[in-house]
């Protein structure tokens, strides 16, 4: 373990302890908000894997978030799977969907890729929305488990924190692995990787499936959090939320999406308390970030000497 690694581990540990303290110190309201932030941070991190590392901009990432929620909910409601086992069904369904849709999408690039991911997500949404007999349609699935399995907001927050940390650890290892290097290379120049003997589409698919799986994990946590599942979880609004988080937090940075999720949800919660038009503020912040700090908050933090988990090794 190098000094750099030790330094980084200490910061991660510090951040985890701080998050746990926040969860328990300020009452259930803050614990609930903190939990939502952590779930969305995980979702945004999964999108970041394909965006910042894989060079793929998805307009349909929420499909896998939504399927994570529905995989969990449907397993209980329609198949009488014990809840503990149903937890795994969410991410697995999302992973399989990502494999299916991804294998179609990675054949395209740029905006065409983005539009096909959007189409896949909208088709998913339509199925969730209209298959009343199976998915409950637009009324969703409710009352199949108690929200948070009946845990206190603080305790469930702690569970989510642990899942988030483990996920980040896995993603961090992935990024540093040979496959991670391959994903970055293909993300930068698929043409070059093909001429070196890579099958770029297969590498992109691998990234897409991993990202889909983690999005599904986040969706499952979200479903447990609220004790329900709605088609909107797979909708464009959730995708855009995650995209905005990644950009505000900082593209091409590992921890950027976490900063992004914190800022975005704090803005959403507190600004909307005073002004109805909080999206106006988000729009202005976004514009300021793109024009003034294209590396986002993580970029600003790096300039102040806080490690951003950026891509320099």
């Amino acid at each position: 373990m190098t000094a750099h690694h030790r330094h980084e581990s200490i910061i991660w540990l510090g951040a985890a302890v701080a998050a746990a303290v926040v969860l328990f110190a300020f009452g259930p309201g803050i614990a609930l908000l903190g939990t939502e932030i952590m779930i969305m941070a995980l979702f945004a991190c999964s999108l970041n894997l394909i965006m910042s590392y894989g060079g793929m901009v998805s307009f349909g990432h929420a499909a896998y978030f939504g399927l994570g929620a529905y995989g969990f909910a449907l397993a209980i409601v329609r198949f009488d799977v014990p809840p503990a086992l149903a937890l795994a069904c969410g991410p697995i369904l999302a992973l399989l969907a990502a494999l299916l849709f991804g294998s179609l999408c990675v054949r395209l690039s740029h905006i065409y890729f983005a539009m096909l991911t959007l189409a896949c997500a909208e088709i998913t949404y339509a199925i969730l929305f209209q298959a009343y007999d199976f998915t409950g349609g637009d009324t969703g699935l409710t009352r199949f488990v108690a929200p948070r399995f009946g845990l206190t907001p603080q305790l469930y927050g702690l569970v989510v924190l642990v899942v988030l940390l483990l996920s980040l650890l896995i993603l961090r290892r992935l990024v540093a692995s040979p496959l991670g290097l391959a994903i970055r290379s293909v993300g930068e120049d698929p043409y070059r990787t093909a001429a070196l003997g890579y099958n770029p589409r297969r590498v992109q698919l691998a990234a897409f499936v991993v990202a889909g799986g983690f999005a599904g994990l986040a969706g499952m946590l979200f479903s447990v959090f609220h004790g329900n599942a709605f088609p909107d979880y797979a909708g464009l609004a959730f995708t855009l939320d995650a995209l905005v988080m990644v950009v505000i937090g900082g593209l091409h940075s590992f921890v950027g999406p976490i900063y992004g999720a914190i800022i975005y949800l704090l803005m959403k919660t507190f600004i909307s308390r005073y002004v109805g038009e909080w999206e106006l503020v988000v729009g202005i912040v976004l514009m300021a970030v793109v024009l003034g700090a294209p590396r986002g908050l993580a970029g600003l933090a790096a300039r102040l000497g806080i490690p951003s988990g950026g891509r320099k090794s």
Partner: peptide, 19 residues
């Protein structure tokens, strides 16, 4: 600049105009 940044700035405009 990056394609994504151009996209995001028009998304920002969407949010601003809507409100």
């Amino acid at each position: 600049s990056e394609e994504l940044m151009q996209l995001i700035i028009t998304v920002a405009l969407v949010l601003i105009i809507r409100d």
